[in-house]
Design a protein around this nucleic acid. Sequence first.
DNA 1: CGTTAAGTTGAAGGCGCTCAACCGACGTGG
DNA 2: CCACGTCGGTTGAGCGCCTTCAACTTAACG
Lengths: 254, 254
Amino acid sequence: MPSAFLNKLERWADFSHADRLLIAQLPGEALTLQRGEQILTGSDDTRRSILMLDGWAGLCKDTPDGERVISELLLPGDLHKYRRHRDPSLRATMLSTGSLLLLSPATVAILADHPVIGPALEWLTTVQQSIHSEWLVNIGRNKVYARVAHLLCEIAVRMNNAGLLEDETCILPLAQVDLADALSMTLPHLNIALQRLRSENLIRLDQKKLTIVDRLRLEAIARFDDGYLMRWPTELPDRRTTTLPRDHERRRRG
Amino acid sequence: MPSAFLNKLERWADFSHADRLLIAQLPGEALTLQRGEQILTGSDDTRRSILMLDGWAGLCKDTPDGERVISELLLPGDLHKYRRHRDPSLRATMLSTGSLLLLSPATVAILADHPVIGPALEWLTTVQQSIHSEWLVNIGRNKVYARVAHLLCEIAVRMNNAGLLEDETCILPLAQVDLADALSMTLPHLNIALQRLRSENLIRLDQKKLTIVDRLRLEAIARFDDGYLMRWPTELPDRRTTTLPRDHERRRRG
DNA sequence: CGTTAAGTTGAAGGCGCTCAACCGACGTGG
DNA sequence: CCACGTCGGTTGAGCGCCTTCAACTTAACG
């Protein structure tokens, strides 16, 4: 029962009982994997999409000098759609033990063509792209301390959207190496940053459980604006700028 | 005549005369804009896609502290597809003077549903996503010198795909500020890096014209592997790894 | 010839990387 | 029950890349 998936979809559409049933009984190959096992590789062309049921995975690339980059996190309820001719250097890896569903193109097509589910899926895809852009900004511009805070903010929101956040607390089954690889920073430095976030009473993190203690302060430090995650459709932009300044007339850096 | 667009598409599909005519006569609102003018803003919801004809544009975000991030470059022949509920903090800006075509959703649908053009478009979209991932890696892991080299390599390939590279030379109408904003680095440092690339006889760059003097050496410095740009469909991955190492058994950093 | 945008250069300082070593939890097998 | 191995987390010293914040030069354009 991919309830996390259902939870996310239902944030953006009203489902009938039949719709819910369709989701709950999605056909596909169910897999249970251990941390570190590959879900699919670049050369894999079985054309199947990944629906995370439980546990976390990541889309990884390897740099020529043997480092690993995690360019995308797959949380429970996330759907990674198959794309023909995907970048062959990309692979999907389990970051914790967990289970997932491999969906055939036909199954995905059924969802995509569904009058209610289809648009909701579109939405999820758009959000995923926005996350990608936001990561660029976070990694490119934020200092490590803020960078870690930013990712934690994002995780909290995404877990909440999947119905997996309770009392500002959710599971975070990643190893610190994974966080470091996702944030393009060094393991020791990530550790420092986490310590500091803990000692400043912004988060709690032990036993793979993350608690956002002071969300407002954390978001301020992270320069986190959840606009890109588009929590609800009704939160769409209304802030229309009256004048459009030419781009190079904007101020830079303070 | 969006010939750059046509050139790119034809790399991946055989077009009939009628197909070419369809592309050449694409209906849409033609605009000619100056550097710095906005093409569309986050709150803009006219649902139109951008087809670059001439000149370069960029997708920009602004950080809370007033910096600008260029998260995507639009070169001549690039199509930026409209997405409902796109990240509202994203806007499209001209980075040089140039012209473009605004396409209605209906027009885009005609292209997408076309039996030959449709798949080619899919292809372009996939490549754009790969570029995005690659930027994450480039910005996250490469040092400035290599980082600049990497972007220049990418530009050369993309311009070549659009038929706009001759004798390893193409137009690069960006200001250095733009390059810096796209690479998430400081303007002075970008300048240094460019100087060095010039002095090492790897590139030539003046009068907005870029020449790759020593591509092999440049690509080596940049750790550039054009796999993610998927120049030709036939270049698809065949390198199947025989053993799949569990992920945390891989070596890190050397 | 004046003005503005774009490119170039320099000094100083700190953030984050490198490269370790150590600790602690957990599971396994003797 | 304890010894041991492994994985993951923690901590520290030193250094170098890159940023910051300027000033200045050159180019573009009226």
